[in-house]
C-alpha cells in the first residue's frame, strides 16, 4: 500500500510545525524519519493517522485521503504513544479486543502472539498486571504488538526503540526487517537512534524545523552523514 503526501502543512498561529510539500512512499518501502525534537516528526505522523487536522494538503493511503473516511484503519497499524493503549485492560484483553475488531479468530491471535514471544521476553502475557501498571518499555511492547497483530499493510511507529532495553531493541529491529522482506509492509518509523533507523530503513528523511532538508537512500555512508549533520545542526544558524 503506497502513501502520498500532498502539500501537507501544519501551521500554528505563529509558526510552521511541519511542511511536507510532496512525499511519495511506495508500497513496501521502509521509511525512516529523523530530526531533533520539534522537527515535526510526531506532527507528521499524527497528520498521517488523522489525529490532527493539517492546515493544508492531504495524506493519501492507497487511494483514499485519510481525512475522508476510515477505510485505511482496516490495514494500518500504528503506535505513537500511550494514548493508544487502554490502560485498564490486561495485555491479553487488549490484544483480544484489537483482534476482534479485525475479525481474527482466537487461534490467529495466539499464533500471532507466538511470533512476539521473543519480543515480549515473558513479561507481557500471563501476568496479572494491567497495561497501566506496566513499565514504559513493556507498554511500548504491547502497543507495537497490537499494531502488528492484524498483519497491517502499513505500519507507523513513533520512536519504537525509545524506552526499550537493548535486547528488545535488537529483537524489534530483526522483527521489523523480517516484516519488510517477508510481508512487504510499508513502514514509517521515526527515531532518535540513528544507528537503528539506518539499519532498518532503506530511505531516511531528515526533518529540521518542520521542513524536509534531506531525503536519502540508505547506503553504507548514511549513518556517518547523519552523524555529521546532527553534530553540526544549530551551530551554523
Amino acid at each position: 500500500m503506497d502513501i502520498r503526501i500532498n502539500h501537507l502543512t501544519k501551521v500554528y498561529s505563529d509558526y510552521t510545525a511541519m511542511s511536507a510539500p510532496d512525499l511519495k512512499i511506495p508500497s513496501g518501502e521502509s521509511f525512516g524519519l529523523v530530526g531533533n525534537n520539534g522537527a515535526g516528526k510526531t506532527t507528521l505522523f499524527r497528520c498521517l493517522m488523522d489525529l490532527i487536522e493539517p492546515t493544508t494538503g492531504e495524506v493519501i493511503i492507497g487511494d483514499m485521503p485519510v481525512q475522508v473516511n476510515g477505510d485505511w484503519k482496516e490495514f494500518t497499524g500504528s503506535y505513537l504513544d500511550e494514548n493508544f493503549l487502554i490502560g485498564h485492560l490486561l495485555p491479553e484483553e487488549y490484544f483480544d479486543f484489537i483482534a476482534s475488531l479485525h475479525r481474527l479468530s482466537k487461534e490467529d491471535v495466539s499464533k500471532k502472539l507466538g511470533e512476539f514471544e521473543e519480543l515480549f521476553n515473558g513479561e507481557i502475557l500471563g501476568g496479572d498486571k494491567l497495561i497501566r501498571d506496566l513499565s514504559k518499555g513493556n507498554q511500548k511492547k504491547v502497543g507495537i504488538a497490537a499494531a502488528l497483530l492484524f498483519d497491517p499493510k502499513v505500519l507507523v511507529l513513533d520512536e519504537p526503540f525509545a524506552n526499550l532495553d537493548p535486547s528488545t531493541q535488537i529483537r524489534l529491529k530483526d522483527l521489523l526487517k523480517r516484516l519488510k522482506t517477508d510481508r512487504g509492509v510499508t513502514m514509517l518509523i521515526s527515531s532518535h537512534d540513528l544507528q537503528h533507523v539506518t539499519e532498518v530503513c532503506e530511505r531516511i528523511v531528515l526533518l529540521e524545523k518542520g521542513h524536509i532538508i534531506n531525503d536519502i537512500k540508505t547506503s553504507s555512508q548514511t549513518l556517518a552523514e547523519l552523524e555529521e549533520y546532527f553534530s553540526k545542526v544549530g551551530q551554523t544558524v
Binding site: 484503519k73 494514548n83 493503549l85 475488531l101 479485525h102
Partner: peptide
Amino acid sequence: GSYFDHIITRNVS
C-alpha cells in the same frame, strides 16, 4: 479520554 487517539485510529466507526 486517556486513549482517545486509540479510538480515532482503530477501525471502528
